[in-house]
Design a protein around this nucleic acid. Structure first.
Ligand SMILES: [Mn+2]
Ligand SMILES: [Mn+2]
Ligand SMILES: [Zn+2]
Ligand SMILES: [Zn+2]
Lengths: 141, 141
DNA sequence: AGTTTTATTGCGAATAATACTCATTATCAA
DNA sequence: TTGATAATGAGTATTATTCGCAATAAAACT
């Protein structure tokens, strides 16, 4: 968190609160849901500040934004190991998974096409085990 | 295109035009850019119809929507082989690439966690060969 | 501890992408 | 050709996110 204090940026109660709240909840909250949770501890905080804090925390790498197929972002505190997401179109649950193959793809592109990759986003959607009818035709064998 | 005519849906001049325009341009157009191109051939078409047509064509699998890190979608006619996207944060160019490893990941999740995957979206961002300074620290070795 | 500097906040208003309403038009089955 | 109704165009509404600005507070300085 202290690495924010570069370039004259300040550590504020609001920014600390946004990060803590995100870390405490092991979920993938959207900006408004996070706002509601943060408001419990700071009833005066504004939604704009939540957005601004998230943008800053993202810049510093402490927070990740995930696009999970909806028209708004979902946020989570950065984990130790990179992971990706599956969302169920039935119940809306989010399942995290690791996939080292993705980094192999990235490595191939780096050497093959001289691309410098700074962001990786893999999002799968479909139906979780609870939601898909066993007879239904799905996306895998 | 004819498979649209199921469930009482109709093939209209506008829908045909949206699909054709998308097929002709081998680009990743957003809804508004597509609207402008379509308007050349049908000056009366409305933006709402472009959105509605895209939604329908997506449903029928003829069109893919890609989220490329911006706050709006980009569309392309469905290709023979699935592919993924890299966007350059410098110049904005979009580079397509194939990556069979992604489907291995999907297969693993299908058998391992009984997930039914219907949508796959992999998006990389960073700097293309023209844009990254050779000395800069990037995301690969 | 008090003062100064200026980054940050809260609030409301502004934007931008996309969806909706509804009267009119056009597709298509009969 | 006609009738039933799906789709369109135009405008409006909605939603996520950003912006402008006066008031506030974090950090640097005394
Ligand atoms: Mn996660
Ligand atoms: Mn493409
Ligand atoms: Zn589910
Ligand atoms: Zn570039």
């Amino acid at each position: 968190m202290d690495l924010i204090r570069t370039q004259g940026r300040r550590i504020t109660r609001q920014r600390r609160l946004v990060l803590e709240t995100l870390r405490d909840s092991q979920e993938h909250l959207d900006a408004y849901a996070l706002f509601e949770r943060v408001k419990v501890r700071d009833s005066k905080i504004s939604l704009a500040t939540v957005y601004r804090s998230l943008a800053l925390l993202k810049e510093s790498g402490l927070v990740q934004e995930n696009r999970l197929g909806e028209d708004h972002g979902h946020f989570e505190a950065t984990q130790a190991t990179p992971h990706y997401h599956f969302t169920c179109l039935g119940c809306g649950c989010v399942i995290e998974f690791e996939a080292p193959q993705v980094m192999e793809v990235v490595a191939t592109l780096c050497s093959g096409q001289a691309l410098q990759v700074t962001g990786v986003n893999l999002h799968l959607s479909g139906y979780c085990a609870d939601c898909h009818a066993p007879g239904q035709d799905g996306g895998c064998g």
